[in-house]
Design a protein around this nucleic acid. Structure first.
Lengths: 326, 326
DNA sequence: TTGTAAGCGTTATCAC
DNA sequence: GTGATAACGCTTACAA
């Protein structure tokens, strides 16, 4: 018991005893078991983070931001890669609960994540949604203002002269995809350009999905003059297909997307993008979660939305326009 | 007790009782506590992973590879970002032990990580070194054959006509830096070119470090014709400095580095690099760790070394040479 | 200031 | 086939 007091820096131990105990601790390399202390206190000092893919340049900073914020608060992070697989995600959620994480930060696979998240919500389990909303799940969230981001981007494309814009996105059950498409449609409507459903391509949001979709676009009768992809890796896939088909970006077709990749931009300031403050978003989301865990958050759900930032570079074809004008 | 048997799929429970219990489990959303079971069994089903920076494009796939392998074996991963900070790393190690992780996978900050790793080793704690060796720590490891990788790269640079090669690396207490420098020196020696200590720049191995070192190089009386950096982010920093100084790569100076970034290469096949199979390395390292944990590994330490792969693109100036020759 | 007792939620062991 | 008992290593409450 006295050892416990020393370990937890509680008072009521004589300086002498404390010294003796500290010496023994050092000699024995004694490390108090968080399993045991967690068991009695119901505090594991663990939070869970589930993302579709850590190695994606958008999610990697998310992981970093979350881990840093958690550490500062004395929490460790259990990291899970859902691989955009609903079943895997469900297993992760169940297992994290088994490990008694005190809260969960999740960039869910999509709308159908509601099944497992609903249980948590009903149990009043501390939960924060990151990057994506899930209909029916009413909890704290940190996301991008996707509608306005996409609107901005689409408006830019049109300002540069594009009238026919293809959009490559998720199956329609991911909020980011839906919202970004909504932004595109709004911009189109404002410019009195008809929105054509045939220019929306649904695919997996990875490189392969972008690659395949690009091939479809290349085979279209009426080829669009610009491609707008829902995220970075899809754009990479598009780029790959274009290169193979010897179609030049932006000379032959423009390409823009969501998510900036900083180091990429330094090597080659090429892609015109909507940049998301990923690390900051994760930081904030973790703060929200920690407040929920601490019970200082109140009943109301908090939905924080960050503005996206349009970064104009080469791939949208703005240079071509300028050249043509001069 | 009977519940425990059902949960753990043990026999000795009648079909009827089993059904009843399963029903109750479903109704109550009962999830057995791994804290409690871990306490009694001394198996937390947790492993720790410490890397300098998850968001670095070399380490992100490492995290992914390790997490995937761990999950397949029924383990969860506690992820820690040491930020190349020795003190932080020490805290992480201590804390992970407190959480009773069953093993630790670590890309250590450097040689001075020996202090905290030695304790683990003495306690016979399952430990696998990733990417970097630590003198005095005799445990399983998975690394790149840095000497031969760097030798290959340097040989290539010389084949392309470079005689004066600057090398930007860590402070001399990180094995990767030392080994890569050794490779460079070997290649130089083979080509009977004198190695000049003044062309080795020590810096932090991040973008800022590369940026600053590049500025130093630009100010040299005798400017080298090529820069070889110890990793990707340093190269990015160099690129940034060059761009600002309006020095063209590779026309005015060549630039090569360790670590490929796949998606970057698709957008812009520019950097000549030594590619490391990061995800595979992490996968293998995790296997080694799991074997140690399972106690099926034997006494002998296993040091697995992967060959690096030279990928020749633009930044080394090979095209310039060809053009000059034709 | 120190120490004793009980209990956190599991599982190993043994009794029924 | 089922359940009682003890123990894992801590902390809370209380006693000395």
């Amino acid at each position: 018991m006295t050892v416990s007091r020393v370990v937890n820096d509680q008072r009521g131990v004589s300086a002498e005893t404390r010294k003796k105990i500290e010496k023994a601790i050092a000699e024995l390399d004694y490390a108090p078991s968080k399993l045991a202390s967690g068991l009695v206190s119901s505090k594991s000092r663990l939070i869970g983070l589930i993302v579709p893919d850590v190695s994606n340049p958008f999610f990697a900073p998310i992981v970093r931001g979350a881990e840093t914020a958690a550490r500062r608060a004395g929490y460790r992070m259990l990291l899970c890669n859902s691989e955009s697989d609903l079943r895997l995600e469900r297993e992760y959620v169940a297992d994290l609960v088994g490990h008694r994480v005190e809260g969960l930060l999740i960039a869910p696979v999509g709308d159908r994540s509601d099944a497992h998240l609903l249980k948590l919500q009903e149990a009043n389990f501390p939960l924060v949604l990151l990057d994506r909303h899930v209909p029916g799940i009413e909890c704290d969230s940190v996301t991008l203002d996707n509608v306005s981001g996409a609107r901005q981007m689409a408006a830019h494309l049109m300002a540069v002269g594009h009238r026919s814009i293809a959009f490559i996105t998720d199956a329609d059950d991911v909020s980011t995809g839906r919202e970004r498409r909504e932004g595109l449609q709004q911009a189109l409507a404002e410019a009195h350009i008809e929105f054509s459903e045939s220019l929306v391509l649904y695919s997996t949001t990875d490189q392969l999905g972008g690659y395949r979709s690009a091939q479809q676009i290349l085979n279209m009768q009426q080829r669009p003059t610009a491609i707008f992809t829902v995220n970075n890796m899809v754009a990479v896939g598009v780029m790959q297909a274009m290169r193979e088909a010897n179609v030049k970006v932006p000379d032959d077709i423009a390409l823009v997307c969501f998510d900036d990749v900083q180091h990429l931009a330094v090597i080659s300031p090429f892609l015109t993008v909507i940049d998301q403050p990923a690390e900051t978003m994760a930081n904030v989301a973790t703060q929200l979660l920690l407040e929920r865990i601490a019970g200082v958050a109140g009943k109301k759900r908090r939905n924080i939305s960050f503005p996206g930032k349009l970064i104009v570079r080469e791939s949208c074809g703005v240079r071509l326009l300028r050249k043509a004008q001069s």
